[in-house]
């Protein structure tokens, strides 16, 4: 139990570092707010190694902490709805057994952006935001692809190292 706690703490710290790193990288040249989604590597690893419960919990904790530490509290609604939808979608698509980890990640990346935009639509009541949706979906797909490949590599290394 304490080993698991330490492990999850370590993973949370890793996710926070990745969140921070991502804020340092200017990646939102086309649409404000677009991020690479590197942070998603951690919940994805947890989803495959430890199960949905841990991936979900870690993601919520990570979003709350990251927004408190170096984000802004106003973005929390968007971040949370994106994070929750993304992990749920990844867990479901993993459970179907149809997709590889890359496919699961692509679905998660897309749904993350859909969730964020849905929250923005509800909060701001600005229907014009819907024009961003196709762009955000494609961006989420592309970033999810990269993240999925990376996570597959990480998982393989971890397995080889016997961890």
């Amino acid at each position: 139990m304490s080993k698991k706690t330490a492990y999850l703490g370590l993973m949370l710290a890793l996710a926070l570092i990745l969140s921070y790193l991502e804020r340092l990288l200017p990646f939102d040249f086309a649409v404000p707010g677009i991020k690479l989604g590197l942070t998603n590597i951690v919940p994805l690893i947890l989803l495959y190694r430890d199960g949905f419960k841990y991936a979900f919990g870690l993601n919520i904790a990570r979003i709350l902490l990251a927004n408190l530490l170096f984000g802004n509290i106003f973005a929390l609604t968007y971040a949370l709805s994106g994070g929750v939808l993304s992990v749920l979608a990844m867990a479901i698509s993993k459970k179907t057994g149809l997709f590889s980890i890359t496919g699961v990640s692509m679905i998660g990346g897309t749904l993350h952006n859909v969730g964020q935009l849905a929250a923005a639509l509800i909060v701001l009541r600005a229907p014009a935001l819907i024009y961003y949706l196709p762009l955000l979906m494609v961006a989420g797909l592309a970033c999810g692809l990269l993240v999925g490949f990376t996570t597959a590599l990480v998982l393989r290394r971890l397995e080889k190292a016997g961890l």
Partner: peptide, 19 residues
Amino acid sequence: MLKKADIAAAAAILLAAWL
């Protein structure tokens, strides 16, 4: 590394975005 279903999912997302 990519399965058929992955490509199908990506195609579905792109199609939905385009629609």
